[in-house]
Amino acid sequence: MKAAEFDYAKPRTVDEALAILASHEGEVRPIAGGQSLMPMMNFRLAQPDMLMDLNALEELQGIRDEGGFIIIGAMTRYRELECSELIAAHIPLICAALPHIAHAAIRNRGTIGGSIALADPAAEMPALMLALEATITVVSSRGVRRILADEFFLGLYETALADDEIITEIHVPRSKAPAHFAFCELARRHGDYAIVGIAITAQEIMPMRGLRVALFSVSDRPVRAVAIEQALENTSVGDAGAMKLAVQAIGSMAFQDDLNATDKTKLHLVGVLLKRALTELCT
């Protein structure tokens, strides 16, 4: 199908974009890469009154290393992340996840900010933000807010982003993007949305310390598995007792069914992925 009618604006500066969001009556939908929003519009699941195109906003582009953070502009495309030496050197977890995100032609256009703003529970980027302890900077004509990823994802396609705000950049602390990381995902076909997925970072691995475990496609939003983190803290990979506790911890989490799998299947698969991810973490 084709998208329903809408008005179109292409602001040249962030200030201009914020003025549109602050003043326009009706639903204004910012479009970044459009790789999820366009299908939603073609299916008429989204019918905004106005589409505000963020693609001319140079202020939202680029990746830089500043003050202990890798700062990623919201309009940075997946392809730019794939080609970035800064990302390869400092946030290899992102490099590990990128091949799982759809297909090359989608990654040429899709953006990190778009994925975070949409907050699809089966998407990779939101979960990575949790594992990387990222901070999401959002701006409106009312001012700037910096929101921890832990407080950003509130539900199914629901975030802390207000209607008049857009994401400008993402701060990933370099110290929290360590060499110890793992990413695993199960999908029916390559590039499909995950049935379940897991992203892990750790400050140390012998024994494991400072673990952050993020799961996606298990619930209405990406989730930190704090219970798994606690069960594994200060233990070694291969510690059968700790693993048992971790699997029990998974059992205590509330998973949700979707079209791919029941909550029980997801619960089982998270256990499978956790074992794989911990092996990957320590190799």
């Binding site: 790789q35 366009m38 299908p39 392809r79 032609a105 040429n108 256009r109």
Partner: peptide
């Protein structure tokens, strides 16, 4: 110079 989906771009 980069492949895109012609249906996902206006």
């Amino acid at each position: 110079g980069a492949c895109v989906r012609g249906c996902l771009m206006l």
